[in-house]
């Protein structure tokens, strides 16, 4: 009897706040910081920290611009981020599929 390798979802993506940010950004070209804050229900500080981590990992791009005198921060998913999110959901689906297989 051979055991199939254990499927490991990316723990970095699995973190709820980062997963929410990536999910939102996967549905659009870019989103403003305020929208991300409303969508994820995170505080400004928490959201900033998570966005910085995602940017460091190369999963998102952050753009800081001015509209008149008002600073506007927006973020967009990179190809690497999109790939990581896709792989994450594939891993989760695989785990669920194996779980269902064992139960039946």
């Amino acid at each position: 009897m051979s055991l199939s390798p254990v499927v490991q979802p990316d723990k970095f993506v699995h973190e709820p706040a980062r997963l929410a940010i990536l999910t939102v950004l996967s549905g659009c070209k870019s989103a403003e910081f305020l929208f991300l804050q409303r969508a994820t229900q995170l505080t400004k500080g928490n959201l900033s920290v998570q966005m910085s981590k995602l940017e460091e990992a190369g999963f998102i791009e952050i753009d800081k611009a001015f509209e008149g005198k008002k600073p506007v921060t927006s973020a967009a998913l990179t190809a690497k981020g999109a790939r990581a999110l896709k792989q994450y959901w594939e891993a989760m689906d695989e785990i669920r599929r194996r779980g269902n297989g064992k139960r039946s």
């Binding site: 549905g27 659009c28 870019s30 989103a31 403003e32 910081f33 305020l34 929208f35 991300l36 927006s74």
Partner: peptide
């Protein structure tokens, strides 16, 4: 815009 921010559709 001020309450929810904006999203650029892809």
């Amino acid at each position: 815009d001020e309450r929810y921010g904006r999203v650029e559709a892809n």
